[in-house]
């Protein structure tokens, strides 16, 4: 089930991935059979509410899923090879070298007891065979590339001496210093102010384009996706409900959840008296409704929605998982 046909073979291929948490009350399925491909150099946005499973998907791809979470079905192929079955050591070598990761909070993803330079040099020397001096030179270049002024001086400073935006630049430098071909960016700008957010997104976009790295951009902010991504996957309750090119999904969403989501975003200058709202909240994993997980909140739900989970159906340029489109559009 290829989501979109790309001329070259996909860099990353996620097939029917399910992530399960074993609890005392039985397994909870947090990600339920998601499938998508990522072409080299492509930016895929993953958007959804908290608990939709978007971060978990990123965690599974980087091999950082921790107990009691586990992949209980499906596979992840990176450059044609399965990576979900790799040992921790093999995965560690892949991570950082071929797959970079950027997390939400730049303060907690940097080691406060090491200078920025030490962290960069360590990462560079772990993944590339460079001597101490060469690695330091490379680290200074990296800092300069991400737009940190006076990198020769800043390299010997500690993370707390950097502002939030500058710290996130350091994190990006760390993620990209070994030139990975895939970057997982999990809410990279959520902790930052809007004016800084624009700078960081621009930098991320530029750096990845220059190096041909593909990005999975996980965020809850549709605006960030609309301005950054090539394609977007909308997640709800552990499933991808809609995936397609950004322009298509933003301008002409198919799934009732995507439609509601797009309409509920307040816009500057809309002069609305009321915002469109989706009543209710996303169900808890312990209390998932039957059939389509969105049906209790869906304005267009019908009998079939309570019975079966809708399969992903190809629509123009992407897929949508909704019974409305299953046979003939209602």
């Amino acid at each position: 089930m290829n989501t979109t046909t790309f001329p070259n073979s996909p860099l990353l291929s996620v097939r029917d991935l399910s992530i399960c948490f074993d609890t005392r009350h039985g397994p909870l399925r947090a990600v339920d059979g998601i499938t998508f491909d990522l072409a080299p150099g492509e930016i895929l946005g993953m958007v959804g509410e908290s608990g939709a499973g978007k971060s978990l998907t990123g965690t599974a791809i980087t091999g950082l899923l921790e107990r009691p979470g586990r992949i209980d079905r499906g596979e992840i192929l990176f450059e044609g090879k399965r990576i979900d079955t790799l040992s921790a050591e093999e995965m560690r070598r892949l991570r950082g070298r071929r797959i970079g990761a950027i997390f939400q909070d730049p303060l907690t993803s940097l080691n406060p007891l090491m200078t920025v330079g030490q962290q960069l040099v360590q990462t560079i020397r772990t993944h590339l065979s460079l001597g101490k001096e060469a690695a330091r030179k490379r680290a200074i270049e990296c800092l300069a590339e991400v737009g940190i002024p006076a990198p020769e001086a800043r390299i010997d400073q500690y993370p707390h001496q950097f502002s939030g935006g500058m710290r996130q630049r350091v994190v990006i430098a760390l993620a990209l210093c070994a030139e990975p071909s895939l970057v997982i960016a999990d809410e990279p700008t959520t902790a930052l102010d809007v004016s800084i957010q624009a700078q960081i997104l621009d930098l991320l976009k530029k750096m990845c384009r220059e190096r041909g790295a593909a990005v999975i951009l996980v965020t809850h902010d549709m605006g960030v996706i609309a301005e950054t991504a090539d394609r977007v996957a909308v997640m709800y309750s552990g499933r991808v409900v809609e995936i397609g090119p950004v322009e298509k999904v933003v301008r002409d969403p198919r799934h009732p959840y995507t439609k509601g989501l797009m309409q509920s975003i307040p816009r500057v200058g809309s002069n609305a008296l009321r915002l469109t709202q989706i009543d209710g909240a996303m169900p808890r994993l312990t209390d998932l409704p039957s059939g389509c997980a969105f049906h209790p909140r869906c304005p267009r739900a019908f009998a079939e929605c309570k019975r079966t989970k809708p399969a992903a159906l190809p629509v123009e340029g992407g897929h949508v998982a909704c019974h409305l489109y299953q046979e003939e559009p209602v």
Partner: peptide, 24 residues
Amino acid sequence: RLLMDTVPDISLGRRDRAPAIGEV
């Protein structure tokens, strides 16, 4: 004006705008 310009927007109209410089 800077604040207004940097709000991520779903209208897709400003994908290539230049971001504001500097920090607080």
